[in-house]
Structure formats: structure tokens, C-alpha cells
Simulated assay, not measured.
Amino acid sequence: MSTLFCLISGVATIYVRYKQVHALNPEENRIIRLNKAGLVLGLLSCLGLSIVANFQKTTLFLAHVSGAVLTFGLGSLYMFVQTILSYQMQPRIHGKQVFWIRLLMVIWCAVSAFSMLTCSSLLYNGSFGTDIVQKLHWNPEDKGYVLHMITTAAEWSMSFSFVCFFLTYIRDFQKISLRVEANLQGLTLYDTAPCPVNNERTRLLSRDL
């Protein structure tokens, strides 16, 4: 349930951010392209999160690793793209402070990713046995224990860098209001000729621009 909540929250956050950047820069072609790339990377990262949650490492290791690559790899690229967008939009749209904070989050993520990849490569290269993938409980005297702990800590560190990066959107999202609009083609759902009706427009978020 918690994974589903994180997945839905992630998709919603990424989409709202995409719509906001698009609305703020409707004629900037470079920003529009980067914004679309960020949307694709973010959604694929959320897909990877679903794969990681549904395929455990001890049952389907390859699927679990593939999901982790999507989640952390493309998620890191999403953060990088959004940081570039922040650079492109400052100081016209927001201050330089936002860009520097997001850049620090990206550096934090990159250091964690490097540590995780390095230690996990050493851990799973076969030097510590072939059954290490199935190992769930570790003791300090086990071979590869230090590498396992560093890998785990780096993975959690990357996760926290993602969360902190999303938290930088809070002030941005306080300046946006989304609405859903229903355009009716008729007063019934039968296959009849369309007739003019009043459209309904309802707010999704209560914050005003």
C-alpha cells in the first residue's frame, strides 16, 4: 500500500511539475523539449519503482535490478533535467537559490549512486560466493558485510535525495491552480447529434496563481 501511495504521488508530482513549467514557458522551445524529456524520465522512473516493489531480489533478481536501474538511473536523470530547467528559468521565473538547492540535491544523488554502484559491483562479482543474492540476514562476521552495508546506506541515501528534491517543489506548487474541465457533447449518452450545453469546470487544487 505504501508503495502504491508513493507511486501515485510521484506520478502526480511529476505531471503537475510538467504542466507548470509548460505554462510558465509556452514559447521557449528548448525548455519545452527539456520539460517533455523530464516528464518521460520521471514516469519511467515511477514504472521502475513499481517493478522493484513487485519483483523481490530473492525471487527474480534480474527484474528487480532492472527496476532499480529505471528507478534510480532515470530518476537521477530526471533530477538533472529539472535542475537544468531551474537554471534556464532563473532569475526570470524564480531566484538563483532554488537552482543551487536542486543542484546540491543532484550532487548528493550522484555521490550516493557512485558509492552504490561501486560497492554493489564488488559485492556481486562472485568473490563472495554465488548464493549472496539470496542472502537476507547479514552478520558482521560475514564476508562482504561492509560492502553490503555501504550499498544499503547508499541506496537509502539516494532515496532521501529524491524525496528532498521533490520537497523543493513545495513553494512552486503554492503558485499554481489546476482545473478539470468536462466538455459535454449532448445531454444524454446516446448516439445523437451534439447540442450545445454548459460545460463544467472544477478545481483540482485550491491554490491560485
Rank of each mutant, 00 (worst) to 15 (best):
S2H: 09
C6H: 03
I8N: 12
G10M: 02
G10H: 02
V11T: 03
T13E: 07
Y18R: 02
K19I: 07
H22F: 15
P26G: 05
P26W: 04
P26R: 04
E27R: 12
E28A: 12
E28D: 15
R33H: 15
K36T: 05
C46W: 01
L47C: 01
L47M: 05
G48W: 07
S50L: 08
I51R: 04
A53V: 02
K57P: 12
F61L: 09
V69R: 08
V69E: 09
L77R: 00
M79Y: 06
F80A: 09
T83H: 08
I84M: 02
I84K: 08
M89P: 07
M89K: 06
P91W: 02
I93A: 12
H94W: 15
Q97V: 10
Q97N: 15
V98W: 12
V98G: 03
I107E: 00
F114Y: 14
S121Q: 05
L122Y: 15
S127Q: 12
G129S: 01
T130M: 04
D131C: 01
K135V: 02
P140Y: 07
P140Q: 08
E141L: 09
V146C: 00
H148N: 02
E155G: 06
F160I: 06
F160R: 02
S161A: 10
F162S: 02
F162N: 01
C164R: 05
I170R: 10
D172F: 06
I176R: 09
Q185F: 15
G186P: 10
P194G: 05
N199A: 04
R201V: 12
L204H: 10
L204T: 10
